Lab assay of single mutants.
Amino acid sequence: RTAFSSEQLARLKREFNENRYLTERRRQQLSSELGLNEAQIKIWFQNKRA
């Protein structure tokens, strides 16, 4: 289980509010910017949509 920092969570929530689905390219960008792997971001979005 991933423990996200408050900064990472704030960024993910802001991104989710703008778009509930990420393109592969956007997921790669977020992964690089947040220091998370793409799978972690993908799962976070899946869980948030559920």
Results as ranks from 00 to 15, higher is better:
Arg1Gly: 14
Asn47Thr: 11
Ala39Asp: 15
Leu30His: 00
Phe45Ala: 01
Gln46Pro: 03
Ser31Glu: 06
Arg20Leu: 04
Glu33Gln: 05
Ser31Thr: 05
Asn17Ala: 14
Gln28Trp: 06
Leu9Asn: 05
Arg49Cys: 08
Ala39Tyr: 13
Arg11Leu: 07
Arg25Met: 09
Glu24Gln: 12
Arg11Phe: 06
Arg11Gln: 06
Glu7Thr: 10
Arg27Met: 15
Ala10Pro: 01
Glu24Val: 13
Leu36Cys: 07
Leu36Ser: 02
Arg26Trp: 03
Arg49Trp: 12
Leu30Pro: 00
Thr23Arg: 03
Leu34Gly: 00
Arg14Ile: 09
Trp44Ile: 02
Gln29Gly: 04
Thr23Trp: 04
Asn37Trp: 04
Asn37Lys: 12
Thr2Phe: 14
Ala39Cys: 13
Leu34Lys: 01
Ser31Ile: 05
Ala50Glu: 11
Lys13Ala: 12
Thr2Gly: 13
Lys42Ile: 14
Phe16Leu: 03
Thr23Cys: 05
Tyr21Phe: 12
Phe4Met: 08
Arg25Asn: 11
Leu36Asn: 00
Ser6Asn: 09
Trp44Cys: 03
Ile41Asn: 00
Gln29Phe: 08
Ala50Met: 12
Lys13Thr: 15
Leu30Val: 03
Leu36Tyr: 01
Gln8Arg: 02
Gln40Pro: 02
Arg14Lys: 14
Ala50Cys: 11
Gln40Ala: 13
Leu36Asp: 01
Gln8Cys: 06
Lys42Tyr: 09
Phe16Ala: 02
Phe4Asp: 02
Leu34Phe: 02
Arg20Gly: 07
Ser6Phe: 11
Ser6Gly: 08
Ala3Asn: 12
Ser32Ile: 14
Ala3Ile: 11
Arg1Glu: 15
Gln40Gly: 03
Ser32Gln: 13
Arg14Gln: 14
Glu38Cys: 04
Asn47Asp: 12
Trp44His: 01
Thr2Val: 13
Gln28His: 10
Asn37Met: 09
Ala10Thr: 07
Arg11Ile: 12
Thr2Leu: 13
Asn19His: 09
Asn19Val: 04
Tyr21Val: 09
Arg25Thr: 13
Ala3Lys: 12
Leu9Ser: 04
Phe45Arg: 01
Phe16Thr: 02
Ile41Pro: 00
Ala10Gly: 05
Gln40His: 09
Ile41Cys: 03
Arg49Asp: 07
Glu7Ser: 09
Glu15Pro: 00
Ser6Val: 11
Glu7Val: 07
Arg20Trp: 08
Phe45Ile: 02
Gln40Phe: 11
Trp44Phe: 07
Arg25Glu: 15
Ser5Val: 03
Trp44Gly: 00
Gln46Val: 07
Ser6Arg: 11
Ser31Asp: 00
Lys13Ile: 15
Ala3Glu: 15
Asn37Thr: 15
Thr23His: 04
Leu22His: 01
Ala10Tyr: 06
Arg49Phe: 09
Phe4Trp: 06
Asn47His: 12
Glu24Cys: 07
Arg25Pro: 08
Asn17Val: 08
Thr23Gln: 04
Ala50Phe: 10
Ser5Ile: 03
Ala10Asp: 13
Glu15Gly: 02
Leu30Ile: 07
Glu7Met: 08
Ile41Lys: 01
Arg20Ala: 12
Arg11Asn: 04
Gln46Ser: 09
Glu18Pro: 01
Leu30Ala: 00
Gly35Met: 07
Lys48Glu: 15
Trp44Val: 02
Phe16Lys: 02
Leu12Tyr: 01
Ser31Cys: 08
Ala10Leu: 10
Lys48Met: 15
Glu33Cys: 03
Leu12Lys: 01
Gln29Ile: 11
Leu30Asp: 00
Trp44Tyr: 08
Tyr21Glu: 08
Asn47Met: 13
Leu34Gln: 01
Ile43Pro: 00
Ala50Arg: 14
Glu33Met: 05
Glu38Val: 08
Gly35Thr: 03
Glu15Asn: 00
Arg1Trp: 13
Gln46Met: 10
Leu9Asp: 05
Arg25Gly: 14
Glu7Asn: 06
Ala10Arg: 08
Asn47Ala: 09
Leu12Val: 01
Phe4Tyr: 08
Glu38Ser: 06
Ile41Gly: 01
Ser32Tyr: 12
Glu7His: 08
Glu7Ile: 08
Arg26Gly: 05
Arg26His: 06
Gln8Val: 10
Gly35His: 07
Gln29Asp: 07
Leu22Gln: 02
Ile43Met: 11
Tyr21Asn: 07
Ser6Ala: 09
Tyr21Leu: 07
Ser5Phe: 03
Lys48Pro: 04
Glu7Pro: 04
Phe45Trp: 15
Gln28Ile: 10
Asn37Phe: 06
Trp44Thr: 00
Arg14Met: 11
Leu22Cys: 05
Tyr21Gln: 07
Arg14Gly: 05
Arg49Ser: 11
Ala10His: 07
Ser32Ala: 13
Phe16Ile: 03
Arg26Gln: 10
Gln28Thr: 08
Arg26Ile: 07
Leu9Ile: 12
Asn19Thr: 05
Arg27Leu: 15
Gln40Cys: 10
Lys42Pro: 00
Arg49Tyr: 08
Lys48Leu: 07
Asn37Glu: 14
Lys42Val: 15
Arg14Cys: 11
Ala3Gly: 12
Phe4Leu: 11
Ala3Trp: 13
Gln40Leu: 13
Ser31Leu: 03
Glu18Lys: 13
Gln29Ser: 08
Thr2Lys: 09
Glu18Trp: 06
Ile43Lys: 10
Arg1Thr: 14
Asn47Val: 10
Leu30Tyr: 01
Trp44Leu: 02
Ala3Ser: 13
Leu30Ser: 00
Arg20Ser: 12
Glu24Asn: 11
Arg27Gln: 13
Ile41Phe: 01
Glu15Ile: 04
Ala10Asn: 11
